[in-house]
């Protein structure tokens, strides 16, 4: 259908090319002007940190002249401070983010399949209570979480306080509330006739789940994972309560150290770290851009 409209539009567009400059400005030109202004608003903070991260002096507040000098010294320094092991923070963040986002999307996909395709008692109640439970501000469970991890750590230190595994566990606890309802929306957009036909051909429920539904919504699953990765790696509070040893921090907690102490603020190092932390996420985001809209709308718009 998109092709058909394109074919029809083609001759129209050719005609419109011959508009006078004034007419062009009044119809589309001003849109470019506003667009450019908006882009400036959107990217100047990002340009600012990029510029500061490349500014060689270890200045306290960075520089206010964009791209006054270019040097990679801050990036080199970032990896050579044993008291602030940036490389380890990066690794921790990626491990926590990847494990949690993949597992939590998988777990909520399992649940969403049950809610979307199976009929059972308590289905509506279950879905409603999931939506409700996720509204409990998890931040306020900090006291309970801290106490729980302290107790677990006494017996199994690998899952206690100051452990990456412990934090992953806590994050996974919220996975069902976070994504199930959205995922339920996607699964409902996959026609039920497809899996009914497969059933008649003798497919098992696992084959339907992995072979049909998961495969059809896979772009959306990728977006869900990305959004969940961004959410989890951006978490500051839970991570700062659970992790305290310098070598077990995540980027969100660790980078904060560069600017929290008013006497040894180091904007250059912070911005260099921020740029490195943002690059993979932003790249993936751009890569999956095409699917992000449907990922966000969660089947709310059927079109």
């Amino acid at each position: 259908m998109a092709n058909a409209t394109a074919v029809i539009e083609q001759p129209l567009k050719m005609k419109k090319k011959r508009r006078t400059p004034l007419k062009w400005f009044l119809t589309t030109g001003w849109r470019h002007l506003v667009g450019l202004a908006l882009i400036l608003y959107a990217i100047f903070p990002i340009l600012y940190i990029l510029s500061t991260s490349l500014f060689p002096n270890n200045s306290i507040e960075g520089t206010n002249t964009l791209f006054a000098a270019i040097s990679f010294q801050n990036y080199i320094n970032l990896f050579s401070d044993p008291a602030r092991p940036f490389g380890l923070w990066y690794m921790n963040t990626v491990i926590i983010g990847l494990v949690t986002s993949v597992l939590s999307v998988f777990i909520s996909a399992l649940a969403a399949y049950a809610f979307s395709r199976l009929r059972f008692r308590g289905r509506r109640g279950g879905l409603l209570s999931l939506i409700l439970i996720q509204m409990f501000p998890s931040l306020l469970g900090l006291v309970a979480i801290f106490g729980m991890l302290t107790e677990i750590g006494k017996i199994f230190p690998a899952f206690g306080l100051d452990s990456v595994l412990g934090l992953i566990m806590i994050y996974l606890g919220g996975s069902l509330g976070g994504g199930t309802y959205l995922m339920y929306g996607f699964f409902n957009t996959v026609p039920k006739e497809l899996d009914e036909a497969a059933k008649l051909d003798g497919a098992t429920h696992t084959q339907i789940f992995y072979g049909i539904i998961m495969r059809l919504v896979s772009p959306v699953l990728a977006v869900q994972m990305l959004l969940s990765y961004i959410g989890i790696t951006s978490d500051y509070v839970l991570a700062s309560v659970v992790l305290s040893k310098p070598e077990s921090l995540t980027l969100a907690v660790g980078l904060q150290q560069f600017i929290s102490d008013p006497y040894s603020k180091d904007w250059s190092m912070f911005t260099a770290g921020a740029v490195l932390a943002a690059i993979p996420v932003v790249t993936l985001f751009m890569f999956l851009q095409r699917y992000i809209v449907s990922g966000l709308l969660g089947g709310a718009v059927k079109g």
């Binding site: 959107a42 903070p45 990002i46 940190i49 961004i230 790696t233 951006s234 978490d235 500051y236 969100a252 980078l255 904060q256 921020a274 932390a277 943002a278 996420v281 932003v282 985001f285 751009m286």
Partner: peptide
Amino acid sequence: PYAFPAFL
């Protein structure tokens, strides 16, 4: 701005 990690 949306792709950029919010804490940063």
